[in-house]
Design a protein around this nucleic acid. Structure first.
Lengths: 160, 160
DNA sequence: TATTGTTATACTCTATAACTATA
DNA sequence: TATAGTTATAGAGTATAACAATA
């Protein structure tokens, strides 16, 4: 959907790969984009009034997608195994997660979200999206389209 | 710098305020953008190998910009006054911040960053930007321009 | 012998309550 | 009397080390 057309006149400094922005300009843009992402992220986390603590929600989101072992969760969340034992225990205590023995490997535990846990994830997601939606409400379509394309680019960059 | 031109033919459903995207479409975009911002933010925080803990860096960034009282910092960071006392004490202990009595109000303390503290902020910022710059390196100018405009929009939305 | 998970223990960040000093 | 800041204490998250059970 790119609307840019490389000019055939050689007057432009633009190269074949579509580059003209200086290294310094790209650096400034990287700084602006990073700060904007971190500020949006911070405000969403601070103001969405979550039902569970951030580290618990992060795990809940994972197990709502599909069941995981505590070891997998500890690796994904970059915390120690004992910490994950504690977090899982807290979610189970809240009725948001449940533990089951792995039928194929007696050492493993399979942690999955309960219906209530999935509901919490769904509600939290909706509340967070509403926060951003309210702030997008004043924007014309052209700006929303810019955000849509940026969202795609940032998601790809974060996944690398 | 918007390149969109409202067509004069009435065939388009676009209204005068430049809206055609449905509420549902805007909702989906909000979700994508929010997730992208949070993932970028998370990876920057996890992988930039900071010299100080996140809550300390957040305060250090504030006082590197200009001096603040502990009370102001507690309000900005949304933590209790005793927590901020502790965080400031830690930064002072690390040689990154310094405390001074307010000449006009004997109750107040003025917390500012040391030269070393400002250096830590500068270095951390540079390292984080480099992380994002590496991921922007493969993008053509057109995509970087999208990110630049999105950065402006998101910054405005986060500031509201 | 390696892996999964838990328990034991200690450190840090957080909060509320109580206290001191100043306005 | 209200405000700024600290100290006391407790609760929760994190980590490492040591342990039990299974592969």
């Amino acid at each position: 959907m790119s609307t840019t057309a490389t000019p055939s006149t050689a007057a432009s400094a633009e190269r074949l790969d579509g580059r003209r922005l200086s290294r310094a300009e790209r650096g400034r843009i990287a700084n602006d984009v990073r700060l904007a992402c971190m500020r949006i992220s911070r405000r969403v986390r601070f103001e969405s009034a979550d039902a569970v603590a951030p580290h618990q929600y992060s795990v809940l989101m994972r197990i709502a997608e599909r069941p995981h072992t505590p070891r997998e969760l500890a690796t994904i969340e970059k915390v120690s195994a004992p910490s994950m034992t504690r977090t899982v225990a807290a979610l189970v205590g809240l009725g948001l997660a449940e533990r089951a023995d792995d039928p194929d490997d007696g050492r493993k535990v399979i942690v999955s979200a309960t219906a209530e846990g999935r509901r919490v994830v769904h509600d939290t997601r909706r509340r967070r999206d509403e926060w951003l939606c309210r702030r997008m409400a004043g924007l014309p379509d052209a700006d929303v389209e810019v955000l849509r394309r940026a969202g795609e680019l940032l998601a790809r960059m974060a996944a690398e």
